[in-house]
Nucleic acid binder design. Structure first.
Lengths: 228, 228
DNA sequence: ACAATAGTGTCTATCAGACATTATCCG
DNA sequence: CGGATAATGTCTGATAGACACTATTGT
């Protein structure tokens, strides 16, 4: 049916949409390109899939190289394969979405001149079709917060209900009733595990600290509606 | 940073999970492989992405070649890129999910010895990693029925509420209360458009016929719970 | 008339959202 | 004590599910 000699050759890359919540904004990890094309332009981090490496493994490797961390939630976002999305050759890119807590400022990777967290509302033109990929990633993240416990992926290991609520408010761009939100998230089986500790870093009554539970789906879901 | 000469070459294919509801079962379109490897084994339809064709366009083209129809709902399912998923060379496959009404028995395509609808519950071993891809597709379809109007994609152009309900019952494997289901789907804005016609093919009071509306999300969603 | 299916109405337990109240810290 | 935030409680309107009932056909 086919043989190695008669298939059209493609390059396969992975691109990463790495999101975090910091400074009251949803931010994406972007790198400034050091080479042509789009030299000097912001782009998503990413790179080539190696010959003996699965595509998923390439995403994990690139994420570690760009952020210095591992163990983050990482999922496939989609594959982008327009013929001329890279002006030099035929490149098919598999995009991944990663949700991260507020990490230290990322180090510039080996491939990039600079790396930085940029609020998604302030992102301008990006290299290649990365603006589209980023938009798809942001929309996916917003949707996933409704019915998965992924909001906790934006929080550090121990967090308060108010911090989790801030994540939802920032990602969705709405305000949520603190009391209803508290009742809701503490009522979802397996979402939050009390650590017993508490903190009063915000000056009021100390808030209980929680760790992520082992729930993988949120039932009932958190509906994305006002509440202010 | 990189040049056409130093990237590892990949072949890129599309694989199609084409689902339909017929004979009271959720069925997938499978082809029997005519060549090695996995000669004689059932596999998902699919083929190579051409050099000057987007990956999405390749999926549309392959779907038309395999089913003879176009205009079906088609969406990316995921990309499968383990290094040795094809024993001959490095192949990255982008899988697509298509939902079809009960089409006539498909014609054998140019690449396949035979094509057939197979109930997903009776699918045995498949070539490559296609069993995994099929399972992912079925799960995606089940989930999508909850919050999108995609159940109608399994119905013909004009259909009754009872036919739509059968789709849900078969795909989810549950029974649903006909009265509550009717109230629910007719209450969702933009889901169903009455054609004015009616049919009595099932022997009782004639049922009103509907066309698909232009809704893209189902709000409120149809929850996947019993009701019997 | 009777069987069968379509479509509408009603009841009730549950729940989301609005909002009051109490609890526990800091200064 | 006052200010701030956490946590819990109460009320109400909406709704999902259970199920009774009416409507319209074929035999």
């Amino acid at each position: 049916m086919y043989s190695p000699s008669d298939f059209p050759p493609f390059a396969v890359t992975v691109d990463l949409v790495v999101l975090t919540v910091r400074s009251d904004a949803l931010c994406a990890l972007l790198v400034r390109r050091g080479e042509a094309p789009y030299r000097g332009r912001w782009a998503l981090p990413g790179g080539f899939v190696q010959v003996d490496e699965s595509v998923d493994a390439a995403a994990v490797r690139e994420l570690a190289e760009e952020t210095g961390v591992s163990g983050l939630h990482l999922e496939q976002l989609g594959t982008y394969g327009e013929p001329r999305r890279d002006p030099r050759m035929r490149v098919v890119s598999v995009a991944y979405l990663a949700l991260a807590p507020d990490l230290p400022v990322p180090v510039a990777g080996t491939d990039a001149a600079a790396a930085s967290w940029v609020p998604v509302s302030e992102v301008g033109a990006l290299a290649f079709d990365h603006a589209r990929i980023l938009a798809d990633g942001v929309e996916r993240a917003r949707a996933k917060l409704e019915y998965t416990p992924l909001g906790t992926a934006f929080c550090s290991a121990e967090f308060t209900v108010a911090e989790l609520r801030r994540v939802y408010e920032i990602v969705w761009g709405v305000s949520l009733d603190p009391r209803n939100f508290h009742r809701k998230v503490t009522g979802v089986e397996g979402l939050l595990v009390p650590t017993g500790g508490s903190t009063s870093r915000d000056g009021g009554r100390p808030a209980a600290l929680y760790r992520r539970g082992d729930a993988v789906v949120l039932y009932p879901p958190l509906v994305r509606a006002s509440g202010a």
